[in-house]
Design a protein around this nucleic acid. Structure first.
Length: 458
RNA sequence: GGCGACGUGGCCGAGUGGUUUAGGCAGGGGCCUGCAAAGCCCCGUACCCGGGUUCGAAUCCCGGCGUCGCCUCCA
């Protein structure tokens, strides 16, 4: 039984399912107006790990994550670069998926685009107006949060308290500074859709309510995203569903910040690093390892040092796959009772993951199993070594971490140096052998002697 | 002003009332090796400060200090 922290409850609760055997997740996706940054990388990894763990546990998971393709920032960029909004969205959505693939994040089962759901959003806004909880102003349609039962539940603060701290600029037509736009009336030159309440475009908080309920149905299991979405984005989504009287997400999950030198990384602070940049410089698996290494709700520091550290950790994972003839699990990994695994380790893994995704300890467990596999191999106990090695690959794989044991692609020059070195060692010409090793090292290879002769890897 | 998170050994980063304890990286010693590498074994000082509860607290409570965040767009 999976226990998961629920933002609404403010504590770890049982992750219950609406339909037995099936899990439905809606994770807020990106607004495609710029390159993805490290924060995007983290939330996609965190929820990818949750998704994979649910699959590993035998559940049939439906994972929906949207693409916001209409927004002020998209319009601004399009205007600044004198091209269409759709051109901007196409470019950055493509970059988004490239980064996701490099991270090994599974593609969502469904990827709704906001602009494909405008009709549904208009219908919903109409209903909110008919119910008297939304009102029209000269620049759009707003939700009257004072009429929403329990507004502020996600923020963990009552409405009055939120109001007191509101730093929103005055808007004389709004009844409360916390009221938010469901619909923004079109300004000249902006993309627009027809609506009974005037041409315009949907507000950000509206798309996710409509798309999640439309694609997953009422009372779906989990709604997640980065911590900054908790308020106001998720609060406002929830407010719309509550105002409509429609059961919304049963469970809310939010992951912690990516920090840069002790400060939250964010676009507004200008201290963000693009994911694209990171992935050019490091193995995509390194960021996943880094994310797994701390709890998903804790902040993480991403620096060249912590990434390097993670890459060295990967080498330890890969090392066991290089050493032993293991059976790589099929991704996404599903727990099968047919194969020979170390039952105790698997049980321990499940116990840790069930406890609000204790991936740091689960990872420690994987490393322990690797050590045991090496020890067994040292003792020439091939059966135990293989079984333990396969267990390590299974558990790492369950978290989306792939071990790579395949030999490097070796060019002709390297091949000849390797052959020459083997010959020299055969002839006990160690001076020559060491010189050749130096040459190989200079070419960027790590040289290891094995029973089969010289082995090289990057 | 309101609400919240956090402060652990060289670094990253878990943990939680009590035997030995995360784990990774880095460092030291040993085994292995022609020498290495990889691997295995062993090792180091930790728990912000001050009180309190307790037989016993890094772990619970109170106070303090410090850091960070949310209440505006933000993953």
């Amino acid at each position: 039984m999976l226990l998961l922290h629920d933002t609404l409850a403010g504590e770890v609760t049982e992750f219950t399912l609406r339909d037995p055997g099936k899990a439905s997740m809606y994770i807020c996706g990106p607004t495609v107006y710029d390159l993805p940054h490290l924060g995007h990388g983290r939330f996609t990894l965190v929820f990818d790990v949750l998704r994979r763990y649910l699959i590993f546990s035998g559940l049939d998971v439906t994972y929906v994550s949207n693409i916001t393709d209409i927004d002020d920032k998209i319009i601004a960029r399009a205007a600044a670069e004198a091209r269409s909004e759709s051109a901007v969205c196409e470019e950055y959505e493509a970059r988004w998926w490239e980064a996701m693939d490099q991270l090994g994040v599974m593609r969502p089962d469904k990827t709704p685009h906001a602009t494909d759901f405008v009709d549904e959003m208009v219908t919903m806004i109409n209903e909110l107006m008919a119910r008297g909880v939304a009102y029209q102003t000269s620049d759009g349609v707003y939700l009257d949060v004072s009429q929403v039962e329990g507004y502020g539940a996600l923020a963990g603060q009552p409405l009055e308290s939120l109001k007191a701290g509101a730093r929103i600029e005055e808007h004389e037509e709004k009844r409360s500074p916390l009221d938010f736009a469901l619909w923004k009336a079109a300004k000249p030159g902006e993309p627009r859709w027809p609506a009974p309440f005037g041409e315009g475009r949907p507000g950000w908080h509206t798309e996710c309510v409509v798309m999640s309920l439309d694609l997953l149905g009422e009372g779906f299991d989990l709604h997640g995203g980065g911590l900054d979405l908790k308020f106001p984005h998720h609060e406002n989504e929830r407010a719309q569903a509550v105002a409509l009287g429609r059961p919304f997400a049963a469970h809310w999950a939010h992951n912690g910040w990516v920090m840069v030198e002790g400060e939250k990384m964010s676009k507004s602070l200008g201290n963000f690093t693009s994911l694209t940049d990171l992935l050019e410089k490091s193995d995509g698996r390194a960021y996943r390892l880094l994310v797994l290494r701390s709890h998903y709700r804790a902040p993480i520091e991403v620096t060249p040092d912590t990434i390097d550290d993670a890459e060295r950790g990967l080498d330890r994972l890969d090392g066991i796959a290089r050493r032993l003839p293991l059976k790589a699990p099929t991704f996404p990994v599903v727990l099968s009772t047919n194969d020979a695994y170390d039952a105790e380790s698997v049980a321990r893994f499940v116990e840790l993951m069930d406890n609000d995704l204790q991936t740091p300890q689960a990872l420690a467990l994987v490393f322990d199993v690797i050590t045991r596999a090496h020890s067994a191999a040292d003792a020439n106990d091939e059966g135990a070594a293989t079984m333990l090695g396969n267990t390590a690959l299974l558990l790492a794989g369950a978290m989306g971490l792939e071990a790579r044991g395949e030999a490097a692609v070796v060019d002709a020059l390297t091949q000849s140096l390797v052959a020459e070195r083997d010959a020299a060692r055969e002839a006990k010409d160690f001076a020559r052998a060491d010189a050749l090793r130096d040459e190989l090292t200079a070419l960027g290879w790590v040289v290891e002697d094995t029973a089969a002769g010289t082995a090289v890897r990057r």
